[in-house]
Computed example of a mutant assay.
Amino acid sequence: MRITDQQANTTNASQVHLVVVDPKDGRVLAEHQLGAELSSLEAVLRGGLTVIATSRAGRPEVVAVDAASGAERWRAAVPAAGGLGGFGAVGFGDLVAVVGVTGLDVLGLDGAIHRSVSLTSYAGAMPRSDGRLVLPQEAATLVVGPDRDVRLDGTEVGIASDDGSLPGLTLVSAGTMRAYDADGHQRWELAGASPAGVVVLGGVVYVTRDGGVTAVDGSTGTVRWRTDLRGPLLTPLTDGRVLLVATGADLAALDLRTGAVLWRAALPSGHTDVMAFGGLLVARTPDGSSTDVMG
């Protein structure tokens, strides 16, 4: 789904179109012309309800448009959007958070405000697959849920890949890495260096950091295995069969169950960043000037 903005060369008029595309084959499923002010698509909710941020006559609003018909479902002026410095909207689960500089408002599918939450700062908002929204704060982490919010001491540890096997899990770093449940109760703690990256798969938390990789039972905190690897380790990747860890010079494949190194392959010269993209494993230079497909 995308919004296109077509600006005519000879007039000040603008045409904004909401285009719905089949992700499998690129077929255009629907196209609707919207009002000229509706050009900032922020979120897509259940049932194809698109949420658009706008400002009409200096009045900031969020507007919900039905992707199938192009009809406007609701329009709301929310308190969080009224402050200086702009605002944005983020979808999480069946809700949308309208985030301003000092607070956010949680809206339902009908546009009604469920509640408002104060913020100490805004450095981005990360939706989770279990219907929560994580926002870094000053020396803290705010987790906004469907019914309640939790503030945790420490910096949120981003989870690069999550199969949903540990719903409610939040990881923060505050000297050690700590794991909390959806109610804000600490479940376990992992001592050692700050993590470079985390993958959650099959109920296990795989952590890369200086010195190697650690696999932790996500429910109990029990360490299942540790594997020493030299080099500046990046965030791990997985295809569901092995754990892939880039060391700066090569790529190591680890057995998910035991941590044994199954194989190692040299990275292309100068291509130290490794990522998964479009079902492919690619290596690129740090400045992004060159990319090699590894398989």
Rank of each mutant, 00 (worst) to 15 (best):
Q6R: 15
N12Y: 12
Q15T: 14
H17F: 12
V19Y: 07
P23D: 08
V28E: 12
V28T: 15
V28H: 09
A30D: 10
H32W: 09
Q33W: 09
L45Y: 14
R59V: 15
R59F: 12
E61F: 04
D66N: 13
E72S: 06
R73D: 09
W74R: 13
P79W: 00
G83M: 06
G85L: 06
G86P: 03
G93C: 09
V96C: 06
L104S: 01
D105R: 13
D105C: 03
D110Q: 07
L119M: 10
L119D: 01
S121P: 04
P127T: 02
D130C: 11
V134R: 04
L135Q: 03
Q137P: 07
R148G: 05
E156V: 02
S161Q: 14
D162W: 11
S165K: 15
G168Y: 10
S173D: 11
T176S: 08
T176E: 11
R178W: 00
D181I: 05
A182L: 07
E189M: 10
L190E: 13
A191D: 03
G192P: 09
V205E: 07
D217H: 09
G218N: 01
T222V: 10
V223C: 11
R224P: 05
R224F: 02
L229G: 00
R230I: 07
R230S: 13
T238D: 00
T238S: 10
A249M: 05
D250P: 04
L256A: 15
V261D: 02
V274E: 10
M275P: 00
G278T: 14
V282C: 10
G295W: 13
G295I: 10
